[in-house]
Design a protein around this nucleic acid. Sequence first.
DNA 1: CGGTATCCGTTTGGATACTG
DNA 2: CAGTATCCAAACGGATACCG
Lengths: 124, 124
Amino acid sequence: MYNKKEYLSTPRCEKMLNGIEDALYVLGGKWKLRIIVGLLDGDKRFNELQRTVNGISAKVLSDELKKLELNGFIRRQVYADTRPVVVEYGLTDYALTLKELLQLLSEWGEMHKERIKEQMRNSY
Amino acid sequence: MYNKKEYLSTPRCEKMLNGIEDALYVLGGKWKLRIIVGLLDGDKRFNELQRTVNGISAKVLSDELKKLELNGFIRRQVYADTRPVVVEYGLTDYALTLKELLQLLSEWGEMHKERIKEQMRNSY
DNA sequence: CGGTATCCGTTTGGATACTG
DNA sequence: CAGTATCCAAACGGATACCG
């Protein structure tokens, strides 16, 4: 039976739940997606990246970068022939498979913020 | 200058960062997206939903449902003329604006899991 | 059934200081 | 610059018990 809410079938919902779970396992948390987005416009050095991802502390950035590198999203490059040593972080090709998703999530977030503002205006 | 990684321009990256931040503010955390997905195939009662969203405790589900209701994603319906009282949770139309996103995230998650399995197979 | 109350361990993350 | 070390507070979340 068709209905206007376009429900998913139960097996489809369970499959989706699994997919979401798998995705959130590596991407969940407050910072990972932001760090990836912060690198979307090009490789960055540590402090540069910290300034881009507003509000993140050095410790947390350091921890998260390690995890992201382990999971194949980020590549850390050391240019050892300089003084002091220059380190650059960049996205792997695999991280770029998230681009569409990040775009969509970001657009949804913008839309949501507008909606909230609208509600504020209408609430008095 | 064009390059094969298709970097975003810096202002675009900052805008995206803001969008992501706004989205994660209401959708972040371990459970919210899963609960929404759990309701995508139709309204559910509390215990039904708890069984669907694997691993969530009654307390956490209760807390999260309240927040999701406050933010306009979920509608709680009480059928008071029954004994015991029947309560049903369902998605609002607003929550359905997340459908594409959830679909994409889930597909990415599936793909990612396959990739991990592949790596396991090739690692010995 | 549909929760709430309480308790408590774990995780997360922020502040500050420090190092090569 | 590129982090690490330490400490601590808050958030998150699990277990159990209990209630109408």
